[in-house]
């Protein structure tokens, strides 16, 4: 029915897409774990990262690495700034208040981009040697795919080291476990939350570069769908858990690619619907996800 090379190719595609979802999901999951905030503005930081990368590629002669790294640093700063201005004044407020604020932040970022750069989509062209498809054995992929997966895995390894070996990282996990207790133990929770936003936003910017490179064009609303899907990934893995977000990201990437690749082609238009139907299914049978840390029944 399906040849082995075809299946191998789908696995490669799933791996690339999953890397992007995993990177975005980590940021959502860390913030949710600490603040119980579904940060609807997270996807928009991905968009900002993509725009910054494009600006650097077009206007400067910086090496490609810098076009990935600089947006990560800048967007990480933007994430901290958003937290300071919009979310910190709401510390202790009902969760719904933060949720509404994150919708407003998302609207400000999107419309700010429209106002300054117009709503027109822009081409995001990477150098040919990056996006050209190469055939290795039975599967073909571009250098960008390899770099994306390698970068995602590298960043996740760094993050794992950070949360297990550094003081701030351990404090971050303590906050996710119990914010009040962490505060009573003398942890500076504002600092930890600022770090969480910076890290999550930087990872989203990296994902933005990969997403833009993969689809070749960017526009102000591009962050909406990956942001929402990354949340699905985080829920699948168990929201609040960093390994869960990584696992969920890859699972969702594979599920989406396999849905398109192995089911009749007339269904492929429904791929986004499939992702959210999957969310409803997961919430029905295992609402705490695969690697849950947070009790999510009525609370």
């Amino acid at each position: 029915m399906f040849s082995l090379p075809y299946i191998a190719q789908q696995v490669v595609n799933g791996l690339t897409l999953g890397s992007i979802y995993a990177l975005v999901a980590i940021g959502l999951s860390i913030v949710y774990g600490i603040l119980r905030l579904i940060n609807f503005a997270h996807g928009d930081l991905l968009m900002v990262g993509a725009y910054l990368a494009l600006a650097l590629l077009l206007n400067t002669a910086l090496p490609l690495g810098a076009a990935v790294l600089l947006p990560m640093i800048i967007v990480g700063g933007v994430g901290m700034l958003v937290e300071r201005l919009a979310y910190r004044p709401l510390r202790g407020a009902p969760e719904v208040a933060m949720l509404i604020t994150s919708l407003a932040v998302s609207s400000v970022i999107q419309n700010g981009t429209i106002m300054t750069l117009s709503a027109q989509p822009r081409a995001f062209r990477l150098p040919q040697e990056l996006i050209a498809q190469q055939k290795v054995g039975v599967v073909s992929f571009s250098t960008l795919d390899v770099l994306s997966v390698a970068m995602a895995v590298g960043l996740m390894a760094l993050l794992t080291l950070f949360v297990t070996r550094t003081r701030v990282g351990i404090a971050m996990r303590a906050c996710a476990e119990n914010l009040r207790a962490a505060r009573l133990m003398g942890i500076n929770i504002n600092q930890v939350i600022a770090y969480a936003f910076a890290i999550g936003s930087a990872l989203a910017a990296a994902a933005g570069f990969m997403w833009a490179g993969r689809f070749g064009s960017i526009e102000p609303f591009m962050g909406f769908l990956p942001g929402l899907k990354a949340f699905v990934a985080a829920v699948i893995g168990g929201i609040g858990s960093i390994p869960g977000a990584m696992l969920g990201g890859y699972l969702l990437g594979f599920a989406e690619i396999f849905f398109v690749g192995f089911l009749p082609p007339e269904l492929s238009g429904y791929r986004d619907a499939f992702v959210f139907a999957l969310l409803l299914l997961v919430l029905l049978v295992r609402p705490r996800g695969l690697l849950a840390t947070v009790a999510e029944r009525e609370g």
């Binding site: 609402p287 009525e298 609370g299």
Partner: peptide, 12 residues
């Protein structure tokens, strides 16, 4: 589930 899962599910 907790109320705010509804936010994401309804956007979905």
């Amino acid at each position: 589930l907790r109320g705010h899962y509804l936010a994401v599910a309804t956007l979905g």
